[in-house]
Amino acid sequence: MEQKLRQEAKALLEQNKVDWIIGFEPGSLKFTATPLITRDKNDTERLIINPFIVNNLADFLTGIKGRVGIVAKGCDSRSIISLIQDNKIVREDVVILAVPCPGLIDLVKIERLAGKDRDELDDISRDGDKVTVTVDGQKKEFAINQTLFDHCLACELPTPQEYDILLGEPGPPAPELEVSGQNIAKLKEALPAERWEFWQNEFSRCIRCYACRNACPACFCQRCFVEETEPQWVMPVPRWQDNLIFQIIRNIHVAGRCTDCGECERVCPVNIPLRSLAREMYGIVDELFSFKSGMDKEALPLMAHYEQEEAEDLFK
């Protein structure tokens, strides 16, 4: 799959079909990959595909000028489609190099299972439904659904539907919805007062680094509401109340755009379980509007279009 990717990416640049390639290359730490954004055909030799290609690369599309060949897992492809629906990018300017994704390995879960930090592990390898972690020469085996990101366990589209070049055989969706939703289910069982206290604690440690917003492909506003000063919707001071309001408004803004790619939670340096909010909103959007963002290229953007009959319901 990697060989094919490198050939295709190189050819796209050589034949001047794209100006940029966005993919992954090996990261500088163990078990990491890092985004590679390049115009140089020689760089394509470094492109990789492995269980650690965690970033949603669609995030880079709105900040780049020109035609782009982009490596896309299912979740990335949904974000790309959502951006097309919102007129943020043009389909013809994007060449989608589709990766059938069997799920990404969550190093936080691996650390918990292995009882060691990621840099203390010798090896992590996947074979079908098993993941083998080598620690101090000892091999430990885990079931795949213990090791994948929650959002991967809930993945509805492992292989992009919309693509230009397919790398490898498409895989079936293998949702483990129950496992992926455990944290959210627990929260929903709690009393409102307990939930309130839970989120108050979680947002007390937010430092307002905005990594959740900046890693989110659906957060494409040129000027975010938190940066508005007249009126000032929310204080830029990291008080838990302001932090919570920021995140709630952010969730409302990406409703119908969020594809549950899980990046907000993955990038949070202070471990706030942001996907719980995002996933809940994703579910609400589906329930109210039967809409799943990024699944259908022809669908109109949920929150940016209007149908006349809606008025009947809204303004009785």
């Binding site: 890092t34 985004p35 590679l36 954004i37 390049t38 995030d59 880079f60 430092i207 307002r208 680094c209 905005y210 990594a211 917003r213 900046n214 890693a215 204080m235 830029p236 001071v237 990038v267 340096p269």
Partner: peptide, 25 residues
Amino acid sequence: AAKCISCGICTLLCPTCYCFDINDE
């Protein structure tokens, strides 16, 4: 800078970064 997403993690959590903002409420 190509792959930087302009978040504040590396600066806010850097032990030598000290920049601050001032706001009145």
